[in-house]
Design a protein around this nucleic acid. Structure first.
Length: 419
RNA sequence: GGGAGAGUGUCCCGAGCGGCAAAGGGGGCGGACUGUAAAUCCGCUGGCUUAGCCUUCGUAGGUUCGAGUCCUACCUCUCCCA
């Protein structure tokens, strides 16, 4: 049983989203008696968000579900500065155009988790951009009104800064100002929308608390902080990175099938946590799935994969991905929905080198890499391991469906389609 | 402004008495074992038309049969003093 009275905190607590809250009782009371407004900041250094951003997005989602108003704050202004928290090196500074086009991509993702214009006055989610107020700041005014509230002594003692200094890594003045700007965001949002709560990952605690201080000093406002635990996989790896790079939430960057596979390959020890974080399934059902042991836990992983994929790409795409996987992995059959790669039909007449085909399929960046895969016994044509790197694909390799199935390892399959 | 030091395989860290396609990690990929898991073990981790050839160690020159390694200039970064 949760110790919280408000539905909002109770749900977050039960699902494991809470790491730390600044004044839990007061916030609980407020959330129980009124509709509160809270925000989370997202940077826009990339064209899409990846799995790592899913946790905060889900917090906003639950917030809206429990009757409150979420704000997704795009860091259009702060992205131009770069957050030193947890990073060893300075971030690349993006151009205005980059940032704006990234913003557009990210906007689309949020609409899948939040309702922006559902007609429920006062509870629609808001998309804000801190460039709106940061870009037009006047330096002198800012120093006088905001800067005077910050103690450099204290800033130097903050973890994000101290780490850089201890390691003798440079921290530019630009980055040093990041926390001031973030604190200012909080105060500005409070003024504009009545936002009283900032959420974020546990690494953001210091920045968020700075905002609370600033709000009190400037406006006497009572603000709150709520942080979520940083998630890693059971084996300690960072969330959301795979061989091919980040697991993006945009279907054109990572297909629903690949996205489904990402979740299907979750480690045993992460299944329960991930079900709570990344699906909206009832806790009782999750508890049942999490109790599965040994081989049976694979059933839970499939459900996790389908539910998580459905949230981002829609139920239909999720079920299609599940079906494709079932055919491919459980029946060993040829599933038409597997990723495909096209090549000229003429190639088969003269013999299409496997090396070239493997590169075409995206299994290797060079024929040399493809060659190594074959030497390592990792490449298969129509489920038969390739032993001769000089092998040519011909018309007789076409399956009855008119394609050639190329596989790398046991998990990656591509249908080669002659055109 | 003065002084000291650093930039290595386009994922990261990091060795490198003038013979180097360049040690060692991490990460990643493949194989074995499995449950599309984890752990473990093995292999691979510049390019190509692969007995060979081509291109790599901040940039541009120089010395040398031969330069990541020595010299010169330049660029970038860090630290210390002012």
């Amino acid at each position: 049983m949760s110790k919280y009275k408000s539905a909002f905190l109770r749900v977050l607590d039960e699902r494991g989203f809470i790491n730390q809250i600044s004044e839990p009782e007061a916030l609980d009371e407020l959330a129980n008696n009124s509709c509160i407004t809270a925000y989370i900041g997202f940077d826009c250094t990339a064209a899409s968000l990846h799995v790592g951003s899913l946790l905060p997005i889900m917090m906003l989602h639950w917030m809206q579900q429990t009757g409150h108003r979420p704000i997704a704050l795009m860091g259009g202004g702060t992205t131009r500065v770069g957050d030193p928290s947890g990073k060893d090196e300075s971030r690349r500074i993006l151009t205005e155009d980059d940032i704006n086009s990234n913003l557009r991509g990210i906007r689309a993702i949020f609409s899948k988790f939040l309702t922006f214009d559902g007609g429920t006055a006062g509870k629609d989610a808001i998309m804000a951009n801190n460039a709106d107020w940061l870009n037009s700041l006047n330096y002198i005014d800012f120093l006088r009104d905001v800067g005077k509230h910050f103690s450099v002594n204290r800033m130097l003692s903050m973890d994000s800064v101290k780490m850089r200094i201890d390691r003798q890594q440079e921290l530019s003045f630009l980055e040093f100002n990041y926390m001031i700007l973030q604190a200012y965001d909080f105060v500005e949002l409070n003024k504009r929308t009545g936002c009283v709560l900032q959420m974020g990952g546990s690494d953001q605690w210091g920045n968020i608390v700075s905002g609370i201080d600033l709000g009190r000093r400037m406006n006497g406002a009572q603000l709150f902080a709520l942080t979520s635990p940083l998630i890693t996989t059971s084996s300690g790896a960072k969330m959301g990175k795979t061989a091919a790079g980040a697991v993006w939430l945009d279907a054109t960057m990572v297909s629903p099938y690949e996205y489904w596979q990402f979740w299907r390959n979750t480690e045993d020890g992460d299944v329960e946590r991930f079900l709570k974080y990344f699906t909206v399934m009832p806790l009782a059902e999750i508890a049942r799935l999490a109790a599965l042991k040994g081989q049976e836990i694979n059933e839970a992983k499939k459900i996790l994969a389908t539910e998580a994929t459905a949230l981002v790409h829609g139920r239909e795409a999720a079920q299609q991905a599940e079906e494709t996987a079932r055919k491919t992995f459980e029946e060993g059959a040829l599933a038409e929905q597997l990723p495909t790669a096209e090549f000229p039909r003429d190639n088969l007449e003269v013999g299409y080198g496997v090396l070239a085909a493997a590169v075409k399929a995206g299994f290797a960046f060079s024929t040399g890499e493809a060659r190594r895969h074959i030497q390592g016994g990792g490449l298969k044509v129509n489920d038969t391991t390739v032993t001769d790197e000089k092998m040519k694909l011909t018309l007789s390799d076409l399956t009855p469906e008119g394609v050639i199935k190329l596989s790398l390892g046991r998990k990656r399959h591509v249908l080669m389609k002659p055109v």
